[in-house]
Amino acid sequence: MAVLVGKRAPSFKAIAVLGGEFEPDFSLDRYLGKKHVIFYFYPADFTSLCLTEILAFQERLADFEAKGVAIVGCSTDTHFSHYTWLQTPREQGGIQGVTYPLVADTTKTIAANYDVLGGHYDYNDAGEMTFIGSPLSYRGLFLIDKDGIVRHQVVNDGPLGRSVNEALRLVDALQHYEQHGEESPADWEAGKNALRSTSSASNYLDKHTAR
């Protein structure tokens, strides 16, 4: 598993579905210098656990937007699959009403570059290249700052859903550090006391982060 923290988030251009429309050259670069980004991967459209996460982010979208954070989802499904799921009412297992972008990683290169693609290529006994495992993404989540640097990442296996509250807590922690230079101790939440940063590891990382 690649550790992308402290490195520039891998760039890409792909088709996304946003506001009921296809965007052929969607890129996270649109947020550079403007917003923090929560970029998350989910395994597949029309699956029950993925549905809960996608809707959970939508339900808290206003909270993220108030903090200047964009939410972007991604799976290896096609943009047609995304669109169909977005048009399906929630009472029928759909995600109608989701307003943030869903990226279609049909080539699986985005998931591979973020190192969240399950399975791997190998050769069989006949010398033919085959894919071993399931070519779906794990539940990866990346918090990217305004400079395009990954500041937090977490990757769950397929059966393990993520916490939107924890994603918000990490946003608060990062923004508090950016604004006040104070570090967040264990289980820190906004409004609680933080630690004044001196010559700690965080200062070292700031100086040596790929900008």
Rank of each mutant, 00 (worst) to 15 (best):
M1R: 08
A2N: 12
V3I: 13
L4G: 00
V5G: 02
V5T: 13
G6T: 09
G6H: 07
A9G: 05
F12G: 04
K13I: 09
G19A: 07
G19W: 05
G20Q: 06
G20R: 04
P24A: 13
P24L: 09
F26K: 01
S27T: 15
S27D: 06
S27G: 06
D29Y: 03
R30M: 12
Y31W: 13
L32A: 12
L32N: 06
K34F: 04
H36L: 13
Y40N: 04
Y42H: 14
F46C: 08
E53V: 05
L61C: 06
K67V: 09
V72P: 00
V72K: 01
V72T: 05
H79Y: 15
S81D: 09
Y83S: 12
Y83R: 12
W85Y: 11
W85S: 00
L86Q: 13
Q87K: 15
Q92F: 12
I95P: 00
Q96M: 13
G97S: 09
T99M: 05
Y100P: 00
Y100M: 07
L102F: 03
D105Q: 08
T107M: 07
T107P: 02
T107S: 15
K108T: 14
K108F: 10
T109N: 13
T109F: 02
A111D: 03
N113G: 07
V116A: 02
L117R: 03
G118W: 12
D122Y: 11
N124F: 10
D125K: 13
G127S: 07
M129W: 09
M129T: 15
F131Q: 04
F131D: 06
F131W: 12
P135V: 09
L143K: 02
I144A: 00
G148T: 10
H152M: 12
Q153R: 03
V155A: 02
G158K: 11
L160D: 14
G161Y: 05
N165C: 03
E166S: 10
A167L: 10
L168K: 03
V171Y: 00
D172R: 03
Q175W: 02
Y177N: 08
Y177Q: 10
E178Y: 03
E182D: 12
P185H: 06
D187S: 14
E189Q: 14
A190E: 14
K192M: 15
A194W: 10
A194H: 11
L195S: 10
L195K: 14
S202N: 14
S202K: 14
N203F: 06
D206G: 11
H208S: 11
R211M: 12
